[in-house]
Structure formats: C-alpha cells, structure tokens
Simulated scan of single mutants.
Amino acid sequence: MELAFSTNAYTNHTLPDAVRRIADHGYAGVELLGDVPHAYFPEFDADDVAALGDALAETGIAVSNVNANTASGYYSDAPPSAFFEPSVINPEADRRTWRVEYTKRAIDLAASTGAPSVCLSSGRPLPGTMPDEAYDHLVSSLHAILDYAEPRGVQVGIEFEPELLVECTDEVLTLIDDVGRDNLGVNLDVGHAAVYGEDLRESIEKSAGHITGVHLEDIAGGIRGKHYHLVPGEGDLDFDVVFDSLDSIGYDGFVTLELYTYPDRPDWAAKTAFEALERYF
C-alpha cells in the first residue's frame, strides 16, 4: 500500500500548487479533484494539462485516482457543498449524457497521468424518480462509461455514500455483480462505511478483489458517527483494524486521505495526517 492525499483539500490553491505541496509533505500519491477549481473538464484545457504534467514530473509523485464524484462547476451559483448533479441517474437523458461525457474526460486525464482509476458516485434519485428507475439509468450509464474506460486501461470505482442511491458495501457489490464488467469496482471510503453503521473489517473483507482505491478520513463517534471528514486522530475510527483488514486481503493500491473539510488549513491537515498514519506504511 501507498499513501496519497487528495487535492480537494487545496481548493484555495491551483492544481499544480496543490500537487507540489502534497509532494512536499512526503506522500507517494496525489488524487486529482475532477471539479472546480482544479480539473473541471469543460474548462480544463491543454495549458492546464501541461502545467499539471510539469508539476507531476518535477515532484515525481504518482496520481492515485481522478475524483469525478462531483461536478459543481456545472452550476453558476453552486453552494459550498458536494454537488452530485447532474448525475448518471438524472431522469433527463441529456443531463445523464452530459455526466457520462464528463466522466469520459476524467478517464482521459487518468490515462494521460498514469492514474489507475476514476471514482464516481451514483447520485441521489431526484423527486419523481423511483429508485428502480434510477438504478436502470445507473446501469446503462455505467456501461457507456466502462466501454470508454476499458481500452484505456482505467478502472471505474463507484464510491458509495449514505443517502445516495448506492449507499453501502452490499449495494455497491450488488451493482458490480449486476453490471458484470471487469473494470468496475468500488472506491471504498472507509468513513462512509462507518457513518452507515458497517463493521469496517467486514466491509473491507467483503470488498476484496473489487477495490479500485481507498478513501480515508476519521469520523467523530466512530460507527454511526456524523459524516464530517476529520484528520486521523481527531475522531474515533480504529485505524489498526482498517490497515490490518487491508493487509489481510492483500490490498496493495493507494490509500488516499480525503480531507476537503480543511480548505483553510490544507498543509496542516496533510502534515498531521501523514504523521498519524506513516507507521502503517
């Protein structure tokens, strides 16, 4: 396993600056935020790609994942919170298509930077859309995305989250089975499993063989705590259990800290988190 840090903590910095700062803290990998203000794909042009490439080459840091969970740049007045719309389950076909194409651009960025995966959330069923209908949209959208990702050697990891259409380990594993494609897996956010009330060892062990990447943060209150990402050591999760379980299933990919809740203190969050977890690596 290798430790990475997501640029979504550095939303007050440019993407190249975020990459350099994360590398300076000793991380082996960096996750790229596929949204404003970093890589919002309708506006992320060749100059941006070149500047990112320069930062990656200069630091030698690897890209752990492209995080395409949100697309808040779609809105001119989006509030400062995670936005999943337009999602791949939106009832309007043109909006689903927009999100599928957006995810394809994330796959392009992953392929060009050597990232093994792109993560994607299911989104929430909107009022008037029954969950069964939303699920059909999800499966159809995923096939289009996976058709594009497969020849480019990029895996797609669904990140489950409480209150979304796919919100726990069993649901994401059912989806993987229903879709039946080798390059679809789970981007396992350990904190999300905890908030849902899952046993972390059981969640990790059930996901064995399907994990495209791991997101990590601490949660106050532990199992069934509130969904607010904290620096490891500030909450109540048992990281001995987390890393022992990942070791037991032979997971050898990236573990990425996702601490978007610290936009005003990203360097402190990156440094403190690294010091709290470096013994596991």
Rank of each mutant, 00 (worst) to 15 (best):
Ser6Leu: 02
Tyr10Met: 07
Tyr10Cys: 05
Thr11Asn: 09
Thr11Arg: 15
Ala18Asp: 01
Ala18Pro: 02
Val19Asn: 08
Arg20His: 04
Gly34Trp: 09
Pro37Ala: 10
Ala39Trp: 10
Pro42Asn: 07
Asp48His: 15
Val49Ile: 13
Asp54Glu: 15
Leu56Asp: 02
Gly60Thr: 05
Val63Cys: 11
Ser64Gly: 11
Asn67Leu: 10
Ser72Asn: 14
Tyr75Arg: 12
Asp77Trp: 02
Pro79Trp: 08
Ser81Gly: 11
Pro86Asn: 02
Val88Pro: 05
Ile89Cys: 07
Pro91Arg: 09
Ala93Leu: 13
Asp94Cys: 08
Trp98Gln: 13
Ala106Asp: 07
Leu109Gln: 08
Pro116Lys: 07
Ser117His: 03
Cys119Gln: 12
Ser121Tyr: 00
Leu126Tyr: 12
Gly128Lys: 09
Thr129Glu: 06
Thr129Ala: 03
Met130Asp: 10
Val139Phe: 03
Ser141Gly: 08
Ala144Asn: 06
Ala144Met: 10
Glu150Tyr: 12
Arg152Tyr: 12
Ile158Thr: 13
Phe160His: 15
Leu173Lys: 07
Asp178Thr: 00
Asp182Phe: 04
Gly185Gln: 01
Asn187Met: 09
Asp189Tyr: 00
Asp189Lys: 05
Ala193Glu: 04
Val214Leu: 01
Glu217Tyr: 08
Ile219Glu: 03
Ala220Trp: 02
Gly221Cys: 00
Ile223Phe: 06
Tyr228Asp: 05
His229Met: 09
Leu237Thr: 07
Phe239Cys: 04
Val241Trp: 04
Phe243Asn: 10
Ser245His: 12
Gly250Leu: 15
Tyr251His: 11
Asp252Asn: 14
Gly253Cys: 14
Phe254Arg: 04
Leu257Gln: 06
Tyr260Gln: 11
Tyr260Arg: 11
Tyr262Pro: 02
Asp267Lys: 11
Ala269Asn: 03
Ala270Asn: 11
Lys271Gly: 04
Thr272Leu: 11
Ala273Pro: 02
Ala273Cys: 14
Phe274Asp: 05
Leu277Met: 15
Arg279His: 15
Phe281Asn: 15
